[in-house]
Design a protein around this nucleic acid. Structure first.
Lengths: 170, 170
DNA sequence: CGGCGACCTTCACGATGGCGAAACAACCAC
DNA sequence: GTGGTTGTTTCGCCATCGTGAAGGTCGCCG
């Protein structure tokens, strides 16, 4: 995502526009002029005259933030079992495809084992342990995509992006 | 919330600590030294020598962001025992789930031990010590989320955000 | 002011059960 | 055959929860 450079205060109107459009922007503030203050994380400013490297550093941070926000989106699963997330993809076999459909419907929320069992095996679940095994397999398949399935003990499972829950010592 | 000023690169270790503790910080970068880059919205840097007003401006923005994030920390407990606070979450086992429900109902207010005991064990409390033990466990689980349970001696317990050390006046 | 007792904190231990994961076998598609 | 998918068995870890016990802190009372 491109970062816009804004002259201050001469381009104030353009700044207003960029803020409304949620475009990342770096404001160039001449000596002796007060910078416009905003808590917006997509906005930054720098005092002129400034080193090109310093401008580059701030632009880079703004870019990272913008792409970070952009990539916080829900993964996409099509009817053929192709799961796409941030450019990469994997193909899911039938059972895991059905499981993943439910997990995505309740993205970041808990899905009970019963619901998963019904989705994965509409004609009745074959064994008691099958679900566990398929969760393990699904986990391995999702890991390269930055997705992870968290266990919520005695309640079910939860699909979210990457991070691992902090273990607590007892 | 206080913004910490960090010398770079001499105070690198302190910076690591502040990042982990999610303390807002402004990094002071001498001439000719590359600033540390981070997309963290609670971090900013400024090139030395810097005008006091410019430092003040950046500190202020960081303060605004920190308080904004802090205020967004409204704990949310769902029916599955999932406790969410500002993006992060932990799953609470049945007993702690019931205890937490009462503590959240009376957020920032004192809840008596009797009320907690009734909520946690509707069929009668099994032992005299059980509640204490579960409070300890709940405390450890909440700490990573920035929540803490305070003891009000002979009155009960109180749930609030992040523990603050308050010295006793004499 | 010193000590007692109530209240609170924390650890360690064992029982129980949920869950993870490897290994194996059967099956199917190409 | 070769490789991918699915179900089963089996072993064992570890989270949860109650219990006992060892301090620690604080208020109150003699």
């Amino acid at each position: 995502m491109k970062v816009e450079l804004v002259q201050w205060p001469s381009e104030e109107q353009r700044l207003t526009q960029l803020r409304r459009d949620e475009v990342p922007r770096l404001i160039l503030v001449p000596e002796g002029v007060a910078p416009p203050l905003s808590a917006d994380v997509l906005e930054d400013w720098i005092r002129l005259p400034a080193d090109d490297d310093d401008i580059g550093s701030r632009v880079r941070v703004l870019t990272d933030r913008a792409t970070g926000i952009r990539e916080a989106r829900v993964p996409d699963l099509d009817e053929n079992g192709l799961l796409r997330v941030s450019g990469r993809w994997v193909s899911l076999p039938p059972v895991e495809h059905r499981l993943m459909t439910v997990l995505l419907d309740r993205y970041r929320a808990v899905v009970s084992r019963e619901a998963l069992a019904r989705a994965g095996w509409p004609d009745g679940i074959p064994g008691r342990n099958v679900l566990d095994v398929h969760i393990v397999r699904l986990r391995r398949r999702l890991a390269p995509l930055g997705l992870s399935i968290q266990t919520v003990r005695s309640r079910g499972y939860l699909l979210e992006e990457g991070q691992v829950e902090v273990p607590v010592a007892n």
